[in-house]
Each structure stands twice: as structure tokens, then as C-alpha cells.
Simulated scan of single mutants.
Amino acid sequence: MNSLTRRQFLQYTGAAASVVTAGGLTDAARAEEVLKVGVVYVSPIAEIGWTKQHALAVEAVKSELGDKVAITAIDNIFMPQDAERVFRELAASGNQLIFGTSFSHGTPLQKVAPRFAKTAFEHCSGIVHLANLGTFEARYYEGCYVAGAAGAHMSKSGKIGFIGGFPIPDIVGPANALLLGAQSVKPDITCNALFLNSWFDPGKEKEAANTLLSQGCDVICSMTDTATGVQVAGEGGAWSIGYASDMARFGSGKQLTAFTLDWSSDYLRAAKGVAEGNWKPEARWDGLAAGVVKMAPYNEAIPAEIVAKLKQLEADIGAGKVHPYAGEVKDQDGNVKVAGGSVLSDTDIRGMNWFVQGMIGKLG
């Protein structure tokens, strides 16, 4: 697998074009037997985090398909104008399947996909579908709800904290689920929420975590692309909840659990579909039941009987017996958003732009 910076990619595509031109029918036929896949990461590939989990899914494709796939991966592409150029270059260089891995890749993909009708595009965290653009996402809120319950069992202050990258529905929804899960154990517990307006800014994240500690939060969950929140919480004697990857080794023994992401099934499904000629754009949104969302091992400090309850909660959510957004649910101002006896629809969950009652913070 090639892992390239954008500058290296430009050099790579130029070299590839020369090879194809000089190739001949035999080489061309051999090239057609190999599935060319391009992947664009929003941040650098680190030991853990959002991009790492996508990189692991790419490795799963390589492991499954072996020499039948050639993968070009480009990291740290965040700005929309850069992403549009990179997606266009990947498509122009013959990649039959191209992945975008961030909400911020949405507009660039929507611009590029129609120009390359024979190329399949997949967008993680996307909401727009085209004839050759599919989307996949995780039900983060399911893992957040379980993690919130774990946090409430261990919290002594009755205050938990949440750090998000941006106040978008994909982050606001899980933040609400974290608190609702905690309130299912302790109804009066509250959550202080802060947003960094960045996916990857360890300095800002450290400041935010310290702010939450100073506000009395003794459990901190951070939905960013670093382990900074887990690390700062542990160093400050607070419990933490990891996101995307299991971050326990950074938490000074204080990570309660993590809601991890396994994108392998999404990547493999798309790759095999393109290779077999039956790929179609889909809107996939899976959680605990499908194994896209998984809970990391629970901290040994959590009593065994509580761990048993948490694992049962996982199973009940996966089976549909418990819904994190089951009513009655009120917003910060006390307005009923989900009536008793009903649950929030998938459409409303994916467009969530309000905080639940007990959340301390602002979205604007």
C-alpha cells in the first residue's frame, strides 16, 4: 500500500501515467485485473484515533484481497479545496473506488463524483448520495450511551465532561447520548460540553480537559482525533472515556472504557462490490449490533456486577430493546423533544442540533 503526502501523490500520478502510456496491451490487461483504491485521510495516521481506525480498515481490505488490490492512501487532507484536487487526481489516475473519511470531505466529493461517473465513491460521515456516491457512518450514540452509564456509576461529583471537535450533529448526538446514558443511572447528573472547532489540536484539547477538571468533572469523554483528553483526565485523577480506538494505555489506568470503531466491514463491502461489478451507492449506518461500534474492555476498578449490567445494556441496545433516545427527552430549555413512549427518528438523530436537559454548554 502506498501512503503519500499530496506532493508525493502528484509525483506518483505523473509516474503512473508514464507507465501506463509505455505499457502495452498485456500490461493494461493485467492492470484491469487489479482493483485500484484511493483513500483520503483527514489527519495524520497516529497510533490511535479516527484516522487510525480507517487505516486498519484499509489494511483489512489489503489482507482480504491481497494482490488483487492496489491502494493509494493520502493523509492530512482537511481543507475542502485540497480535498477536491486530491479526489479529482485519484479518479483521473484510474482508481475505481475512492474513499473520503471525514464530514469535511462532503462538498469536494459531491463536486468530483459527477465528473467521473464510472468511479465509485464512498463517504464516511456523508449525508448526500449520488449515482456513484455512497455513504457509511457509525451509530456512535449507542456506544456513548453505554459509556455514559459506566461514567455515572463511577462519578462522585455528579458532573461529567465532553469535548467535541465541532458542534455538528455527528458530535452533538453522541454528547447527548453520553449524558442520557449517565442519567439512566443517576437522573440528576450533568455534563459540561466544550468544542474545539478542530479535529486535531492537542493544545486546545489539553486546555479544554483542564477546564473541565477545574469545573469539577470527574469523568471526561473526548471525541477528537487524539488521546489528549484521556491523558489529561488520567493525570488529573479523573476517569476518562476513549473514542474511536482503545486509549487505555494513555489514561494512567483511569480509562473506564472506549467506544471504538471498526470500519472493516464497510471498506470490504465496497471493495468487493466494485471488484465483482455489483457495487451500488448505499446509506449504511451501523452500530453495536453490526460490530462497527464496539466497547473496549471495562476498567477493572468497575465492580463486576456493574460490568455485567453494562454488557447487558450493550446487548439490549444491539437487539433494539433499549434505545438511547427513547422518550421522554427534554432539551436544555425544558421543551419536550421526544415524547414518552416514542423514540427519536433516525432522521432527527442525524440532524440533531440541540442539547438535552442537564447539558451545560452552547452550540453557537
Rank of each mutant, 00 (worst) to 15 (best):
A17P: 05
W354E: 08
V69M: 03
T226L: 01
Q11M: 09
L268K: 15
N132R: 01
G234V: 04
D188I: 09
F87K: 08
A120H: 01
A227G: 03
G318Q: 08
D27S: 15
I74P: 04
G106P: 10
S18N: 13
A177K: 07
V307K: 15
W263N: 10
T224V: 05
Y298G: 07
A55T: 12
A308F: 03
M223K: 01
V146N: 04
V292L: 02
A29S: 13
V69P: 00
F195Y: 15
G341H: 12
Y12H: 15
G327W: 08
D316E: 13
G253T: 03
I360D: 12
A15Y: 05
P187M: 12
N299S: 07
F162M: 00
F166T: 07
G351A: 05
L363I: 10
W279D: 04
F99I: 05
G181M: 02
T257D: 06
P202A: 09
Y267S: 11
Q8P: 06
A22M: 03
E205K: 10
R88W: 06
R30N: 15
A147Q: 00
L310F: 05
M247W: 03
V307Q: 15
L25G: 01
I163H: 03
V230E: 00
L130W: 07
A150M: 11
T190E: 13
I74L: 09
F355V: 09
G318I: 02
F162Q: 00
A258E: 09
A131S: 12
A175D: 05
A275T: 10
L56Q: 12
M1V: 13
A339Q: 11
S18C: 12
P297F: 08
G253S: 07
A149N: 06
I189L: 12
A177C: 10
M247V: 05
